[in-house]
Design a protein around this nucleic acid. Structure first.
Lengths: 353, 353
DNA sequence: ACAACTTGTGCAAACGTTTGCAGCCCTTTG
DNA sequence: CAAAGGGCTGCAAACGTTTGCACAAGTTGT
């Protein structure tokens, strides 16, 4: 019996009640309900739920040009950091009757363009973008098209775009400060891609942090990964190791890369934190269960999603409002992966105090 | 200048080329292109990309009743197991021009119903459901409505529904078998919700596994959690502990609950695997980084998503086909959380061999 | 050369809403 | 009591497609 039951339309209800479809429409639309007599309205409502009426969103959207739909573009769904963000987004949007369409771009530009095209085709009312590069054509296009959108996690160099990000520079500084306080002098850095704001600004924070602590930058202790992945993190840590300069701590541009560092340390027979401290960034789920539990910078991912959704709704509602760039304060979480440097007697550290 | 550029329609192209809109439509639709002269078709195509035509999906869907959209319903986006699944789904669907709408239900029935309603309203062409209970009204409704859908991860007791799941019973057996081989006799079980197929069948697998190994079930070594969460896992482990019966291993219904067990062991001062072995289920991302690395049953989550998407497409394409219940073979991954039981001298183990 | 096809294109209806306008009736007011 | 006004409701057009049908022109067969 998989005969699709025929869809109930406004006309059906109208016929049932004995009024014109437009009247039914007015009743069912909250904004216009007051236009029609209570008596009739009640009968219409009754009939509508009696018959199990479901509005046809296509017809609605076709007529009104609003889809009650927003697009969410993320670089990698397997990165557990994005689950909470999407959940936050979905939470607030679904309460306002919006549905979220997700697209996974695997960090490839081509896919991003396709997705954003698709989104336009589907006439999404707004976009939430977690894939932005510091210089990003896609973002610029969106800006020109006038589509409301908000960036999350990653921002661009453009001013005047809506965004919800963590204050990466401060976060980077906090990490170095923490390590310096523990007594670390030689702090290596496994950087993320510099064309992403996260990669770039966290690195800037590291540099600033060194300066604040009165430490010198040693370029041999820095390696840049091409992606925010375990593999790249490990690779970067490996190149730093190959430079044969001593170091007692290594800060990674995000938690995934930190995990890569863990791996590299293990293969080199180094213990964390006894031989070298490691710190990550993001505080993605379950970092506290890692071995050792990862010291990292917490970003309230769920909040990022929720705030982004709220800002987006505001912009959809009144598009002419000035942009809202929300910068959340990061928060260092000290766990077991950082400790007092093993020995101050390492070669290369001349000045101790 | 955020003046939305006016949408190009079929009529615009028609005017530009000097033909009727319907002709343009036929040209732009692959199925009907052959109906029109090549010469005209070329001019239409040229004009179409010249003007930057984007079809209006609402109008299309309104006319054809196909939305090229599928709904995906998951219980908890912060559970890292679902990221890969959704990614798999998105990967294959977007290649066929479908977009995926996600909904997070937080395991609450009310939200599930709302979501599925929403999906119907939006006329999704199909559904992928990861929230099914063993007895599930929502699923039954979908069945009656005739909406193509496929269950993932969790199945129902109904026969004849499309699904992609892991063979939970076999998985459960593999775990016990592994532990028995190591010499464990007293194996505790932290069960998941029994109204979910995963919770139920994994437990059945455990029971069967005990039988296979010639071990007795001790009900004091079993506790059932109300949800697949760390907190519930810990709680369950705690009640088992409170029973004061000795055990050397504890198998949890999924990785999250296993993490809860880790916590409980730590607070009780027990070492894993030295004092008690722990095993999980799912092999969600990063389990190998846990402390200790978690022995678990691997389910190819990405594949689950991709297969589900493929099956769904088939059903959308030819709905009358018989249901396809795909059962993926699980795969035990032995890591550091399981080992030889600490001592055979524990009270209560009389028979050794 | 005429019928019978085939091929290509235009016409118009339909999908289910929303919404400006017109008109009705009923109330208010001078 | 007539005119004016206000509240409700119906009418019809419009949103941008798709598609069955009709029809014109060209092709084939006897």
């Amino acid at each position: 019996m998989q005969t699709h039951k025929p869809r109930i339309t406004l006309k059906d209800i109208a016929q049932n009640v004995g009024v014109h479809p437009s009247t039914v429409s007015r009743v069912l639309n909250p904004d216009t309900r007051k236009m029609v007599t209570k008596r009739i309205a009640d009968r219409v409502i009754h009939a509508s739920e009696q018959l199990g009426y479901r509005p046809n969103t296509f017809a609605q959207s076709l007529r009104t040009n609003r889809s009650y739909t927003v697009g969410v573009m993320v670089p990698d769904l397997t990165n557990p950091a994005f689950g909470p963000i999407i959940k936050g987004i979905d939470n607030v949007l679904e309460q306002s009757g919006y549905s979220v369409i997700v697209a996974n771009t695997d960090n490839v530009l081509e896919k991003e363009k396709r997705s954003v095209d698709k989104f336009h085709e589907r006439q999404v009312d707004g976009l939430i973008i977690a894939t932005a590069r510091r210089l990003d054509d896609v973002v610029i296009t969106c800006l020109e098209e006038g589509t409301p959108f908000v960036l999350v996690v990653r921002s661009t160099i453009e001013k005047g775009v809506n965004s919800v990000v963590s204050d990466e520079i401060v976060g980077g500084q906090m990490i170095v400060s923490h390590l310096a306080q523990l007594g670390h002098k030689k702090i290596a850095y496994v950087a993320g891609p510099q064309f992403l704001s996260t990669g770039f600004e966290r690195y800037q924070g590291y540099l600033q942090g060194l300066k604040n602590a009165g430490l010198e930058l040693d370029e041999d202790l820095v390696a840049i990964g091409d992606a925010f992945t375990e593999a790249e993190g490990r690779q970067a840590a490996s190149t730093i190791n190959a430079n044969k300069k001593p170091f007692t701590a290594i800060v990674a541009a995000n938690d995934l890369m930190a995990l890569g560092c863990y791996d590299e340390l293990i293969t080199k027979g180094l213990k964390c934190p006894d031989d070298v401290s490691v710190v990550g960034y993001d505080d993605m789920p379950f970092t506290r269960h890692f071995n050792p539990p990862l010291t990292t910078v917490h970003t309230p991912l769920l909040d990022v999603g929720m705030q982004a959704a709220r800002i987006l709704l505001e912009r959809i509602w009144k598009p002419e409002q000035p942009a809202h760039a929300l910068k959340l304060q990061p928060h260092l979480i000290v766990r077991g992966s950082t400790g007092i440097p093993s020995s101050f007697s390492e070669t290369g550290t001349k000045a101790t105090n």
